[in-house]
């Protein structure tokens, strides 16, 4: 751990300063402040993690299985509560968010998973439309936005296919389309290329890159060494629940 190089942006003092004015442009998208998560009885998934991710960043979260990547994702979705510490997403402290407001949080937070998590009995179109329906989008809005975003991910010709009629890469595109259809400020991806072959993965990465270019912050947990080395983006490495490395233009390590 001697080679750990924390950048100033992740140090505690600027975090506190920025947090006082959370809604200003350039304010951080995600702030973790001394976050510890212990799964009962005594499994420490995250140990005093502090980090800041700014708006518009593209961040890789790397580390071996069990290092706490998925726990971070689930904390961001408020699927779990931290044992101690503060998590601030888009200027809102998650602990202060009422349970009834959690759906609102998730509508502003696209998420993509390794296993796609598509609804099995719905077509690609309906899967994307569902994310709009849950927030009361009008029929007209659905009719224009869904084909648009499916076109963006390159699935215009397969809108009426069921998930099991699509390849893995295509299913992941549907799930990215679903995550992006609201144009959320933050997209979190939990090993989105974990089930895909290298060529397909490149396509998915290009898609995420394009989404990032529209201004969406992308946080992506991954095991894909090649991809991380090629992209040269910010890399945060976790090991046994501790941030061991945080580099602006890092490699997998």
């Amino acid at each position: 751990m001697t080679d750990t190089s924390l950048e100033p942006a992740a140090a505690p003092s600027p975090v506190v300063a920025e947090e006082a004015t959370p809604r200003q442009p350039g304010a951080p998208m995600i702030v973790f402040e001394d976050v510890t998560k212990i799964y009962e009885p005594n499994i420490k998934a995250l140990d005093r993690v502090s980090l800041t991710i700014d708006k518009g960043e593209f961040v890789f979260l790397v580390g071996p299985s069990g290092s706490g990547k998925s726990t971070m994702m689930r904390l961001l979705l408020k699927e779990l509560e931290p044992t101690s510490g503060r998590i601030i997403v888009g200027g809102r402290e998650l602990a202060r968010l009422k349970r009834s407001k959690v759906p609102m949080l998730r509508r502003n937070l696209g998420c993509v998973f390794q296993d796609f998590k598509l609804l099995p009995n719905r077509t690609a179109y309906e899967n994307v439309a569902y994310a709009l329906k849950v927030q009361g989008e009008s029929k007209r809005g659905i009719r224009t936005k869904v084909p648009e975003v499916l076109g963006l991910v390159g699935l215009s010709s397969k809108m009426s296919h069921m998930p099991d009629e699509l390849s893995g890469g295509e299913q992941q595109r549907v799930s990215i389309a679903r995550a992006f259809v609201n144009h959320p400020p933050l997209l979190i991806c939990d090993e989105p290329t974990g089930n895909l072959d290298p060529d397909t993965s490149v396509g998915i990465m290009q898609l995420l890159y394009r989404i990032n270019r529209t201004g969406t912050t992308v946080l992506m947990a991954t095991h894909d060494r090649e991809m991380v080395d090629k992209m040269r983006r910010r890399v945060i490495a976790l090991e046994e629940g501790v941030v061991v490395r945080d580099e602006r233009r890092g490699g997998y390590g």
Binding site: L77, E79, S100, P103, M104, L105, R106, R107, C111, K117, L118, L119, Y130, A131, V134, Q135, R178
Partner: peptide, 9 residues
């Protein structure tokens, strides 16, 4: 689970 994750109340 999926419904909840995409923000369904």
């Amino acid at each position: 689970e999926v419904m909840k994750l995409v923000g369904a109340t």
